[in-house]
Simulated scan of single mutants.
Amino acid sequence: KPTDNGFIEAFNSKLRSECLNAHWFMSLADAQEKLETWRRHYNEDRPHSAIGYNVPIALHYPGGAASPSPDQAGKLQHPAVQG
């Protein structure tokens, strides 16, 4: 139900209004590119009121590093797992 998880419902609303309704997707690759661009903007550039108008990436990478690209993400390991 929508009332069970307000955070997910708010995210879904933002995704739909800011990305899905704002673009035409001409192919799967085009959709992946546009969604990845929106995801990076949402996490790295867009301030969120719930976290004091900071960007979410700043909570995970205090030094200001960007999140890994999709092709790098599969190659990364958690620091505790690395040898």
Score class of each variant (00 low, 15 high):
A50F: 08
L59E: 04
R39F: 00
K75A: 12
N43K: 15
P79K: 11
H78K: 04
H48W: 02
P47L: 07
G52N: 05
G52L: 03
E36F: 15
S49G: 13
Q72N: 07
A66G: 05
K75N: 06
D45V: 11
G63R: 07
Q32I: 06
Q72P: 02
R46P: 04
A31Q: 10
R39D: 11
E36T: 15
G52W: 02
S49H: 14
E33G: 05
L76K: 02
P70S: 13
P56L: 12
D71W: 12
K75D: 00
G74I: 04
E33K: 09
Y53V: 03
L76N: 09
Q32S: 09
R46D: 08
R40T: 06
Y53E: 06
E33V: 01
E33M: 04
Y53I: 06
E36R: 05
Y61P: 00
K34C: 13
I57Y: 05
H60Y: 02
T37V: 15
Q72L: 15
I51C: 01
G63I: 05
E33Y: 08
D30P: 02
R39H: 12
D71K: 12
T37N: 09
I51W: 00
I57A: 13
K75L: 15
Y53N: 11
A73V: 01
G74K: 08
K75T: 12
Y53M: 08
R46V: 06
I57E: 02
D45E: 13
D71E: 10
P68E: 14
R40L: 08
A66Q: 13
G52R: 07
E36C: 09
